[in-house]
Nucleic acid binder design. Structure first.
Lengths: 245, 245
DNA sequence: CGAGCGTGTCGGGCTGGCTGCTGATCCTGG
DNA sequence: CCAGGATCAGCAGCCAGCCCGACACGCTCG
């Protein structure tokens, strides 16, 4: 009951995928340029294509560029010496990342590992150019601000997901987040446009591969989701949301 | 071993409390104004003092103001119909919140509950004024951007905390975060300047009151922390970090 | 076509959530 | 300043959810 309302409101608030007003960061209006266009126009900017699985930056690399994801998904993760790896964020299109470099002028190094989770197209520019551009054209600052606000809201949603006590709720909540960020509507539900291994899901929600296999199996047996070649289709997000315990 | 290095590096990176360059958002230099001064100067801004436990905004309230926390701590939480409440963020001084209102012009409502966790002093201004100010003076945009970047890093640290699988690690990690954000050094360690009930901790890390009581008791018995009138003192953060499992 | 990764399954063991209760501490109003 | 209520802390016992380790099978991509 509780969970149902919870999940329902989350989903129903996002008919076009996103928190109210959040998804549309990239198109502030017909007249003004988009964030993408702005960044592409900066000194030292470049457009890059990265293959699935390749690293964008390593922990320890100097943080001097800002990135805007144009197409695909990027995984930000923390790697431990044990080899264990946890996912801190799965970035969707139009997400801004590498913002560490925007902080006070002093040098700092990346502490996350950014890898292309799918084939990725992104635009990148030196932080110094970005700062200069803001000083010259205030609307750039506003665009960036909107981009970052959107990131904060996404991250907070993820925190909500992670504070669920039982894994089943966590998984369901995570799937709904993925629908919001990576879902493409089809005639039999929403398909999450990512090739997700159970291991990858486990690393994102703090569980283990075996548990994810079991829980996903349960959801499938109950006719709530379908999995085909690592792509998950959620038949009915509202029904799925009822699975909150 | 793994955990030791992990915790150590986190703490040793933050001698003055904060990620590198993160804490100093409020003072970009002697010449330029601080974010605080800027916001206070905006049309429609006000300085407010809120007593511990009072609400700053409710879910459902229209999101039209931006807040900068000047003194004290604010808890952002999600309330469910069951009465259960989870903490999405514990904001420290100089944190910017209410950023939802900065997103695209369209109306939107708050979906979190913001309450004063301690007695709070904050500065607030209408989002429209903020937007106008950015257009007039680009350095305002830069300051806000730094504020938000800092928030993102904090939030991501919290996600890291929450993906630890065992509660003991989660608690330890959370205590270290609190030391970073609310710690005041004393002659026998770092004291977290918040009156935290076990329930409050549980709501922040997705556990239960009873478990927190037990784990905190263990830490105390092992001489790692001390608790006096709900204030927690961490004797040696580095030793505490060794408690990661 | 073979190697490697990903998926599905089983059992054993333990962590941690849940319930119920008691005593301590804090807060408030008379 | 005290009394009484409310919140908080601590303890124990029960039970299940989930981690761990191990193994077999299937898919996929070189």
């Amino acid at each position: 009951m509780v969970g149902a309302t919870r999940g329902f409101s989350r989903y129903s608030n996002t008919p076009s995928g996103g928190l109210p007003g959040v998804a549309s960061v990239g198109n502030p209006g017909p007249a003004s340029p988009t964030l993408l266009e702005v960044i592409r126009g900066l000194a030292g900017s470049s457009v890059e294509t990265i293959e699935r699985g390749k690293t964008i930056f390593f922990p320890g690399d100097p943080a001097e560029r800002v990135y805007l994801l144009r197409r695909g998904a990027v995984r930000l993760s923390r790697v431990y010496e044990s080899g264990e790896e946890i996912t801190v964020a799965l970035l969707r299109e139009n997400s801004l990342f590498g913002v560490l470099s925007l902080l006070t002028g002093q040098r700092s190094d990346r502490f996350y590992h950014a890898i292309a989770f799918t084939r990725v197209e992104m635009v990148t520019a030196p932080a110094t150019s970005v700062r200069r551009a803001i000083e010259q054209d205030a609307s750039v600052g506003l665009l960036l601000l909107q981009g970052l606000s959107s990131r904060i809201l996404q991250t907070e949603t993820m925190i909500e997901t992670l504070t669920h006590r039982d894994m089943s709720s966590r998984l369901v909540s995570f799937l709904l987040v993925l629908c919001r960020d990576f879902g493409v509507p089809g005639n039999e539900g929403i398909t999450i446009d990512l090739r997700l291994s159970h291991q990858a899901i486990a690393e994102a929600i703090g569980s283990t591969r075996v548990t994810i296999t079991r829980l996903l199996g349960d959801l499938r047996n109950d006719g709530l989701v379908q999995i085909d070649r690592k792509k998950i289709t959620v038949f009915d997000p509202i029904a799925l949301a009822k699975r909150f315990s």
